Simulated assay, not measured.
Amino acid sequence: MLTFALAVFFLMVTPGPGVLSVAGVGSGFGFRPGARYIGGLFIGTNLVALAVVTGLAALILADARVRTVLFVLSFAYLTYLAFRIALAGARIAFVEKARAPGIGDGVALQAINPKAYAVNTALFTGFPIFADAYWAEVALKFLVVNAIWLPIHFLWLWAGVSLHRLDLRPGTQRAINIGMALSMMAVVALAVLTAG
């Protein structure tokens, strides 16, 4: 069980689209919008986990065309989200501050987030705990994963909000938001390179 908990921690804490976007939303828009966004990510990641444990994800992703469509959607959506975060702190007169990503955005991101599928597949298909009680194991894993997932995401939100609260000069805030967006795009680029 300790090995499983450590695997959850290290898979969740490493930068991916979810945690990087949480920090970006916190930095660009503040705590309340960030908490709503985390709510969407939480719903989305649990839906992905449910799809993994029921076999629905394997069935859907078995078709290479579906995987390609999801990959393209993921790339496009992450690029769009990175763009919104990059512009969130900009004080440029002709660019209106974008609406903060909300619950629906979080759910949508997890639905097309390749890391969400990979992490949930690794966690729920590996690390056997109960040899003869699959559903008890799944329930326990859901509890452990969520008990670690929530604080990690709120920690990333806190980091982003802390940057926001420093009341930095507009140029500095814009540079931080652009840095967060570029980090998200680096994760996307790595996904593209490993997919090819």
Rank of each mutant, 00 (worst) to 15 (best):
L143K: 04
L143W: 02
L143R: 05
V145E: 03
V145W: 08
V145K: 01
N146K: 07
A147E: 03
A147L: 08
A147M: 05
I148P: 10
I148A: 03
W149T: 06
W149R: 04
W149H: 11
W149N: 08
W149V: 09
L150R: 15
L150K: 15
L150D: 13
L150M: 15
P151V: 02
P151M: 00
I152M: 13
I152N: 11
F154N: 06
F154A: 10
F154P: 07
L155H: 11
L155I: 09
L155G: 13
W156F: 12
W156C: 03
W156R: 07
L157P: 09
L157Y: 06
L157H: 05
L157T: 03
A159K: 11
G160I: 00
G160E: 00
V161N: 11
S162H: 14
S162W: 15
H164D: 03
R165I: 00
R165H: 01
L166W: 14
L166K: 14
L166V: 13
D167H: 07
L168Y: 06
L168F: 09
R169G: 15
R169T: 15
P170H: 02
G171V: 02
G171C: 03
G171F: 05
G171D: 06
G171M: 03
T172P: 07
T172Y: 13
T172R: 12
R174S: 04
R174F: 02
R174I: 00
R174C: 00
A175L: 10
A175T: 12
A175C: 11
I176N: 13
I176K: 14
N177I: 02
N177K: 07
N177R: 02
N177A: 04
I178D: 00
I178A: 06
I178R: 11
G179M: 04
G179K: 09
G179I: 08
M180Y: 12
M180Q: 08
A181P: 01
L182T: 03
L182H: 02
S183N: 02
M184N: 01
M184R: 02
M184F: 04
M184K: 05
M185Q: 00
M185W: 00
M185H: 01
M185P: 01
A186H: 12
A186G: 09
A186P: 13
V187A: 10
V187S: 08
V187M: 12
V188F: 11
A189Q: 06
A189E: 08
L190W: 14
A191H: 15
A191R: 13
V192A: 04
V192I: 06
V192N: 00
L193P: 03
L193R: 08
T194K: 10
T194L: 07
T194D: 08
T194Q: 10
